[in-house]
Simulated scan of single mutants.
Amino acid sequence: MLQHVMRLSHSWDSTVSMIPRGGDTIWGSLDWSPEEGYSCDQKREMKNSTRVTNPARAKSAISLTRSANFGRIVSFGKDVAEAPSDDIDRIDFKGAVKGHRAENRTCRDLWAEYHGMGFEGTKAVADYKTYTAESIVELLHFVAPKMMARSTAHFSHGIADNMDDPKYKHYKYWSNPLETTLPNAPEMEIFSFYGTGLPTERSYVYKLSPTAECHIPFQIDSSANDEETCLKGGAYSVDGDGTVPVLSAGFMCAKAWHGKTKFNPSGIRTYVREYRHSPPTTLLEGRGALSCAHVDIMRNFALIEDVIRIAAGASGEELGGNRVHSNIFKWSEKINLQL
């Protein structure tokens, strides 16, 4: 199965377009992330918020709750994912010399750039221990320089300092909302519709597996679990629609485009409309008319109603303005982005 996936994906350089935009500023660093303090047990979180009324007790309760380091998008080992950053002994992979790997007998027709990394290059990647959104891009340049050279000609993942810089007229920036501006259309409105209430993968615990099939030496450590920090099967989860985290779906309308900003110079009005997931109660419902899972949300009655009302001329205010079930505004405020 893995060989067939590799054969198909070799022609999919465009998957690079799915790399998170904004780097550590948006997605967090080794010690910080917008979602820090998130509890995957939302019922327990709501219960605690109603029962703990004394500020001192509330502070004590928060301090006893461990939180995942979501900014560490990839960590080699659960211990690394949880350790204070000062205690992590990292060796920079960028200066490593790639070696030679034995002939790939199981996947010899599926050669990729990482097959040329050798054991030295593979070890260097693992020795760096943990990666943030920015260092993930650096890692890809190290592992697959030819692919990344092609991709950087078409995509960009940074944040614009000066939107008047002529370089941002190049089409490679157009797919990044943090490096382009909305049109001069002050009468227009933008809506962000997405689902919430489903565990959604945000960061991962990896392990080194040198003898893996097709010489792919890095695998998600499915044995890594920790209910308190939302870690299950090697993946840390946050609120989202099961595929896209809330931060990715709602940040631009919640903050970067909200009001007049350098990304929204004409002040186009933006609205966040979240839909709380409710699974089907019987098999007869199929995927469910109240489901807010990724793609399934297209048949959600509340979403369809909002779309029809907008198409019929209703404004965002007539829809009721923002409708939020998550902490998107709280998390967005934590992001120090110059607007």
Rank of each mutant, 00 (worst) to 15 (best):
E274Q: 11
A289V: 08
H294A: 10
R273W: 02
T281Q: 12
R309S: 08
V295H: 08
L283M: 13
E305M: 13
I310N: 02
A312F: 09
R276K: 15
V307T: 04
R309F: 02
L303D: 01
D306E: 10
V295I: 15
L284R: 13
M298S: 00
I297W: 01
L284I: 15
H277A: 09
I310P: 00
E285M: 01
L283Y: 07
V295F: 08
E274C: 10
D296R: 07
G288D: 03
L284K: 13
I308A: 13
T282W: 07
A289T: 09
A302H: 08
A311I: 08
A293S: 14
A289G: 08
P280L: 14
F301L: 13
H294F: 05
R309I: 04
G313F: 06
T281Y: 07
H294L: 11
V307Q: 02
R309Q: 15
V295S: 11
L283C: 10
H277G: 06
A293I: 05
S278Q: 06
G288C: 02
L290V: 06
D296F: 04
M298Q: 02
L290C: 13
I308V: 13
R276D: 13
T281S: 15
I304K: 02
A312G: 15
E285W: 00
A311M: 15
A289K: 09
P279G: 02
E274H: 06
A311R: 10
D306F: 07
G286E: 05
R299W: 02
E305F: 07
L290H: 12
Y275D: 04
I304H: 00
